[in-house]
Design a protein around this nucleic acid. Structure first.
Lengths: 230, 230
DNA sequence: TGTTTGTTCCTTGCGTGCAGCGCACGGGAC
DNA sequence: GTCCCGTGCGCTGCACGCAAGGAACAAACA
């Protein structure tokens, strides 16, 4: 997989600037780059990551590369099995991921009901309405909006733990290549459910909000599973 | 929990053995040691950790120490603010931790209801009955049993994500020195609630199980908050 | 006296050399 | 032909040195 390590960014880090702005910038940068490449499948699951190659290709030493890999390991994106290997999310894992999402997003939505301001709800409504234009949008754009909606609700829970846990599940979620997501009817259903959640949110009914959120995640689970089986 | 963490940690690392058994042993060991010391408050929240000092005191190089600290950072036990600092869990954080526990343990208990075998339930029942002897036990032993009960249920969810998330909350949970936990009446109430959960588990009622689990965590939350306020 | 600047030390960020696992490959024996 | 063992190499685990950044303290100037 060395070839896939972004041929397009030959020397950033110009002449070994070594700019060290307080906290480790290099490691953070390497981490971000690697993570992006992994999540976009530019580096495929299962491929080996060699410290020297990354370090050479990015023009940094092995130490920041090492730290980046360590962080990726903590995020569950790579593992150390006789060298660094990009983790893959198998079908069996999907059920586990969605179970987590039900628990996390369900309760986060409950909390959001108690804490969201009317301005927050307006923002969410704007997102939902934007998603109504699914007929004229790319699936990627739709996906982005969808993600934004869920992310924002979780953030509105006001609890950073939920944000972190949610983010963690997203890694694995992205990690399975979702074949065809967001057919037209799926988009319709998604928007319907988003409106249900939003309705509960704005009427301040936590039970309803949690119930709808759970149902929505369950629906998505079903869609994903069907897509993978079919 | 702190009491149970093996306070007897004499100087291992005899004369710089350097035995490298495949995967990094040193880093893992340093990590475990540091974590133990932090969770037992041998190293107090807020204190600075200096890489050189740790490395010298353990007789290893800075690299494994660094990796250990990085892992601790990932676990939320230390942070990097101009050097390594042991995180403290402030009162404000407690509410967030318990919110997570409600979501995680609640849903984990629901899953456990669907997946636990009768043998598993017997094991749990044995734990509960052992806890009935609270009058003749130390608080530490009681705490240990309590932890075992919760841990086992989360494990019975069959979902490693829940186990990991639960463990994560426990770190912060331990991180606040709980003053007087498990007074007699609290022990009575705890056992009552454990039995309710177990009852729902054995009768296979997921809704009830989740409800009771949530209520139990909420009760504990109240106890802890009272203990900290009073 | 207050503010600003210079200096020094402390600690981490980073690079790098070295050595030891393990795996793959190849050669010999049965 | 198959199995076993030796050997080489790829890669990581670890130690260590260097320098940058920042904080604290001191000194000088307004």
């Amino acid at each position: 997989m060395p070839d896939s390590i972004d041929p397009a960014l030959p020397e950033r880090f110009p002449g070994r600037t070594r700019k060290r702005a307080g906290t480790d910038l290099l490691a953070a940068d390497v981490h971000a780059r690697l993570r992006t490449r992994i999540l976009t499948f530019e580096i495929q699951p299962g491929s080996r990551l060699v410290e020297d190659e990354i370090s050479a290709s990015l023009g940094v030493g092995r130490t920041p590369v090492r730290e980046a890999l360590l962080r990726l390991q903590g995020e569950g994106l790579v593992s150390r099995r006789k060298g660094w290997v990009v983790e893959s999310t198998d079908a069996d894992c999907i059920d586990r991921v969605f179970e987590s999402r039900v628990a996390i997003e369900g309760y986060a939505t409950r909390l959001a009901t108690l804490r969201a301001s009317s301005a927050d709800i307006c923002d969410l409504m704007a997102l939902v309405e934007e998603m109504d234009g699914f007929d004229t949008m790319s699936r990627a754009a739709l996906n982005q909006l969808n993600r934004a909606f869920h992310e924002r609700i979780v953030t509105l829970s006001g609890n950073p733990f939920f944000v972190e846990m949610h983010e963690r599940t997203q890694f694995h979620y992205w990690n399975m290549r979702l074949p065809v997501l967001f057919t037209r009817e799926q988009a319709v259903m998604t928007n319907e459910q988003h409106r249900l959640i939003l309705g509960a949110l704005s009427s301040g009914d936590p039970d309803d909000a949690e119930r709808h959120a759970r149902a929505h995640v369950a629906t998505t689970h079903r869609i994903v599973r069907d897509a993978l089986d079919g």
